[in-house]
Computed example of a mutant assay.
Amino acid sequence: MNHETKPDQSTPAKQSTKTSALTYINVLLVGAYLGFLFVKSEVARWDRIHDMFLFREAYMYLIIGTAIVVAMLSMFIIKRLGITTLEGQPIQYKPKPFHSGVVIGGMLFGAGWAITGACPGPIYAQIGAGEWMALCTLVGAMLGMFSYAGLKSKLPH
């Protein structure tokens, strides 16, 4: 009698999670295009951000509102068509619970945005546009990120 064990044919083979170079190139191109849009639409300009926080003009609020509508439509389409990640996993939105840390983090984020004129995405657009002081913003964002990671267990969640 041959007692060899055969692999279970009902279990699908584990998909490779290795990301191809073409994927990285596509992400880089989309990021460069987004940075170009940030610069041309002036959403990465300190004066625009400053005027938004002082309620001097509605330009940035219209941009943010448009981004929210586009994100909502995109999530609807993703859900409706059952679009998956590169690894084949379903894309799902999982709301995070509201707590005091969200308020504290939001206030810190807003203060940094108001002072520097950039949230995370536009930092790279500012650097790409030659605004070298944005390197200080990038360093500050990185310090904030690593500080959060180090203090996460002590912060409200």
Score class of each variant (00 low, 15 high):
A58G: 05
M142I: 15
H50W: 03
G130Y: 13
K96Y: 10
V102T: 06
M52K: 00
G130S: 13
R80D: 11
F36P: 06
L34F: 15
L28K: 02
G82Y: 06
L28C: 14
L86C: 05
Y59S: 06
V39I: 05
N26M: 11
L108E: 05
H99Y: 10
L73M: 10
L73W: 06
I104R: 00
V102S: 08
S41F: 04
S147P: 05
Y148F: 15
G31C: 09
L29T: 05
I78Q: 01
A58H: 10
S16M: 11
S41T: 07
I77T: 04
P97C: 06
I64S: 07
F109N: 05
A141I: 13
M133S: 15
I91A: 12
Q15D: 11
P97D: 08
M133P: 01
F36A: 14
G144F: 11
T11I: 14
D47V: 08
D51P: 00
R45P: 00
A118W: 03
A114D: 06
T23Y: 10
A111Y: 15
E57V: 03
R45H: 08
K79E: 12
A129C: 04
G82E: 01
K94L: 15
A111L: 15
D51Q: 02
Q126P: 08
T23V: 12
I123W: 12
M133E: 02
L155V: 10
M142N: 12
K6M: 10
T85M: 01
G117R: 06
L81Y: 09
G82M: 03
T5A: 14
L62I: 07
K96W: 10
Y124M: 14
